[in-house]
Amino acid sequence: MTKMRTKWRTSITKIEPNKIIIRGIPIERLIGSISFPEVVYLLIKGKLPSEKEARMLEAVLVSFADHGVTPPSTQVSRIIASTGSPVNACIAGGLLAFGKHHAGAIEHAMKLFQNSVELCDSEDDIPEVARDVVNKYISKGKKIPGYGHRFHNEDPRPVRLFELAEELNFKGPHMVFALEVEKILNELKNIKMNVDGACASILSDLGFDWRIGVGMFMLGRLPGIIAHIYEERTKEPPFRKFFDVDEIEYEEEQIFRPPKLKTPE
């Protein structure tokens, strides 16, 4: 008996000879008609955003654009670029550097915000739930994702993002929750929200699932990584030294201890 092949199924893009249909819309109708953030929204959510939603998503992507040579992902990309590797390898190395301690906070924050808001019957419940969350994290000695920054005492990006949200009258429950947590943390520990927390709340109010958080961060950071790769390849000597030999301290650690041999009689 011949086993039937299972067909691939997708509702994202349909490809036919001389035709490309994205979420039911021919590609030629999209080109020149919508912005890149709008097509990102369309691809992931399956519908076109409103003007406010498009503006907020665009602001999120811009806020992620670059953070100098300080992030590990940028450093990895530049190190790979200095070896003469092709640009795709340099980009891949940078993106693979995203993990739990770099870029991972946005997904943790989105999950926290979305789960917490689900516990609220109305916005009146948000302050109490926010207080419970803060107390829970503090009692366990854990850092709340989306708050505090290793470099900035006050990250300038959340301030502008929330200003724009006010200008557009775009302020949903996740944003309200995130700001309430910041208010409590600021009073207790002088800790403010970082860009991950701000964008996590905005993306949650835009209806994005927390599991695509790092993907959205990658979309925003990619232009910055490409710029650093290009700068490294065109302005720095190849195989650039990031450390001199005398800056490296070797610590001998004896992991394997050879067995004592009997002395011959």
Rank of each mutant, 00 (worst) to 15 (best):
R131I: 09
D132E: 14
D132Q: 14
V133F: 13
V133C: 09
V133L: 15
V134K: 06
N135W: 10
N135M: 03
N135K: 14
N135I: 00
K136P: 03
K136M: 14
K136C: 07
K136D: 07
Y137Q: 02
Y137W: 09
Y137M: 12
Y137T: 04
Y137A: 12
I138E: 04
S139E: 14
S139D: 14
K140P: 11
K140V: 11
K140S: 10
G141I: 11
G141M: 11
K142F: 02
K142Q: 14
K143M: 12
K143C: 03
P145F: 11
P145H: 03
P145W: 02
P145A: 04
G146D: 05
G146M: 10
G146P: 10
G148V: 06
G148K: 07
G148Q: 13
H149I: 01
H149K: 06
F151M: 12
F151S: 11
F151L: 15
H152E: 03
H152P: 07
N153G: 07
E154W: 13
D155F: 09
D155G: 01
D155M: 05
R157E: 07
R157G: 04
R157T: 07
R157Q: 05
P158F: 06
V159H: 12
V159D: 11
L161K: 08
L161I: 12
L161S: 04
F162T: 00
F162Y: 15
F162E: 08
E163W: 00
A165H: 12
A165M: 09
E166M: 00
E166D: 15
E166G: 00
E167Y: 08
L168Q: 02
L168R: 03
N169M: 04
N169G: 04
N169F: 05
F170M: 10
F170P: 10
F170C: 07
K171F: 05
K171R: 14
G172C: 02
G172W: 01
H174M: 01
H174A: 00
H174E: 11
M175C: 09
V176F: 13
V176D: 10
V176T: 14
F177A: 12
F177S: 05
A178D: 10
A178K: 08
A178G: 12
L179W: 05
L179A: 03
E180Y: 13
E182S: 01
E182K: 10
I184L: 06
I184Q: 10
L185V: 01
L185D: 09
N186M: 08
N186H: 13
K189N: 07
K189L: 15
N190M: 01
N190D: 01
I191G: 02
M193K: 05
M193A: 02
M193D: 01
N194H: 06
N194G: 00
N194S: 01
V195N: 08
V195K: 11
D196R: 08
D196G: 03
D196L: 07
